[in-house]
Every structure is written in structure tokens, then in C-alpha cells.
């Protein structure tokens, strides 16, 4: 965990709401694991007062570049989107646990929902390095959010997309396609990131097919390092203390957490 002032190398607009920031880091990019996140300070003003948690999209470890894929969702990201190459942004990270990367010479199914695709790129790259076949199933609202999907082509054996409006790929939720994908691809593990209601559905499907499943969750968060106790995740085992998305997660084994009443 480091606190670094990072120079913005580039700031790419993917579409009206999605951006990719590339930052020059000293140590964060070298150490960041797939599924981890950083806490980014959008500006030196008191409103918004908190940092923004943004997942690691991918890294160039040699150059020390950190890529963050984010969506403009509110006050903080509205300010962030005005950032230009050459500006400095203060970053705290890498934070959180990251995905389990013990899988070797096997098959992994990655499922992303909307912005949930962000942390899956580095994951796909890392799984590829371990000689795994990677299948990406990505669901988005419309074609806009698929503008960046091309970057997965080199690291995935197959990419299947579904849009809610049917503009690209299958029409509807990607989760509808999962049983067919699982039956033909036969993955050893599923990694998922997206809206909580989608994570809940994927947990159910993974359990039905008896496949290990990791979900990356998003919660409101203040500190990002386990102090404020704001980012509660409910553990599956009753009577156990709440989990914290920032330090116990953001990645959890699906069976360890309650997702149903958690939207």
C-alpha cells in the first residue's frame, strides 16, 4: 500500500460515460494484483470529501503504468473526467485482496456486467500467463459499453457479449447464456464482477453446476483500508462478524457471502 502522486499519461474517452486513465506510478503498478483497487483523490477540494475507489483495469509493470477504467456516475467522477495528460493525481493503493490466481493449465469463465468488465482484463492476462483458457461473457446495457471490449480479444479464447437493448450480440442479460456456455466450455472456475443482483444470479448458477466461483463486489466506501467499517458485506455463516469489502474483499468466494438481500 502506497500513497503516490501519479502523472496522468493519457486519459481516453471510451464513450459518453466511460473513460480510461493511464497513470505513471512508482510502485503501485508493479505490485497491483488483478481484482485489487486504488483510492483516487479527484481534486484538492472539500467536496467531494472522500476518495473514489476504482478497480485496477490493467498494468504495464515494466513502465509502471496503471490503467483505471471508470464510469462517470456522480460528483467525483464528473471532476475526474476533466483530468488531462500531464496532470497529477494522488492514489492510495493497491488495496484489497484480488482474485484467486492458483488456477493453472485449466479453463476459467469470466463474467462481467457493465463496468464490471474493468477488473477482468488484468485477470484474463494473468490467467493466460498461467496457461489457462479464458472465456469472457460480458453483458452491458448497450453497445456504448462495449467500445473497449476489443482489448480482451488477445487474452481470451472466446468473447461472448449480450446487450440489454440487443444492439450487439445476444439481446438480454448475459446470465441467460451462462448455462449453455458452462455446458460447452466446462470451466473449472467462474470469476464475476458486476451489479450485485447479477452476482447473486451467477452464484446460483455456479452452485447448480458445482463450479467454484469468485465475485468482486462493490459497496460504498470511505477509507479503503479497513478503518471506517463502512463497506459491510454480510458473511454466509451466521453469527460471524461482517466482512469488509475493502480488506476482506473486494473479491469473495461466492459461497462465503450473502448476496440476495444485498442490493
Amino acid at each position: 500500500m502506497y500513497l503516490e502522486d501519479c502523472t496522468v499519461i493519457s486519459h481516453e474517452k471510451i464513450n459518453d460515460r466511460d473513460y480510461i486513465l493511464t497513470l505513471q506510478t512508482e510502485k503501485i503498478a508493479q505490485e497491483a494484483k488483478a481484482g485489487q483497487f486504488v483510492q483516487l483523490k479527484v481534486a484538492d477540494i472539500i467536496d467531494p470529501v472522500l476518495r473514489r475507489p476504482i478497480s485496477v483495469h490493467t498494468v504495464d509493470r515494466e513502465k509502471g503504468h496503471l490503467k483505471l477504467y471508470y464510469q462517470v456516475l456522480g460528483k467525483g467522477t464528473e471532476i475526474l473526467k476533466r483530468t488531462k495528460a500531464g496532470d497529477t493525481l494522488n492514489i492510495l493503493g493497491p488495496l484489497g485482496n484480488g482474485f484467486d490466481l492458483t488456477l493453472k493449465d485449466s479453463k476459467a469463465l469470466l463474467v462481467g456486467g457493465g463496468l464490471g468488465q474493468a477488473p477482468l482484463l488484468l485477470l484474463a492476462e494473468e490467467l493466460g500467463k498461467r496457461n489457462n483458457e479464458v472465456f469472457l461473457a460480458l453483458g452491458t446495457r448497450d453497445e456504448l459499453s462495449l467500445k473497449n471490449v476489443i482489448c480482451f480479444d488477445n487474452v481470451c479464447k472466446e468473447v461472448q457479449v449480450a446487450t440489454e437493448d440487443g444492439s450487439v450480440g445476444f439481446k438480454g442479460y448475459i446470465t441467460n447464456n451462462l448455462p449453455a456456455i458452462i455446458e460447452s466450455f466446462k470451466p473449472e472456475i467462474i470469476y464475476a464482477c458486476g451489479p450485485n443482483i447479477m452476482m447473486s444470479k451467477i452464484k446460483e448458477i455456479a452452485a447448480k453446476y458445482n463450479i467454484k466461483c469468485q465475485v468482486s463486489l462493490e459497496t460504498r466506501m470511505a477509507c479503503g483500508i479497513g478503518v471506517c467499517l463502512g463497506c459491510t458485506v454480510v458473511p454466509a455463516e451466521e453469527g460471524k462478524p461482517y466482512l469488509k469489502a475493502c480488506v476482506d474483499g473486494p473479491v469473495f468466494w461466492a459461497e462465503e457471502v450473502v448476496l440476495d438481500d444485498w442490493i
Binding site: D47, V49, R220, C228, L229, G230, C231, T232
Partner: peptide, 24 residues
């Protein structure tokens, strides 16, 4: 030991934040 409150515990507000951790 205390579990603290369930549900959303923090909410950012202009120049500040609300918390209802509930003494976890």
C-alpha cells in the same frame, strides 16, 4: 463485541459524510 448496524452504513454528503456504523 458488537456487530454494528446492517444495511448501508455510510453516505457522502456535500463536504462531509454520514455514518451509521453502530459501534462495530
Amino acid at each position: 463485541p458488537k456487530m454494528g448496524n446492517s444495511g448501508e452504513r455510510i453516505y457522502e454528503t456535500p463536504g462531509g459524510m454520514l455514518n451509521s456504523i453502530g459501534l462495530e
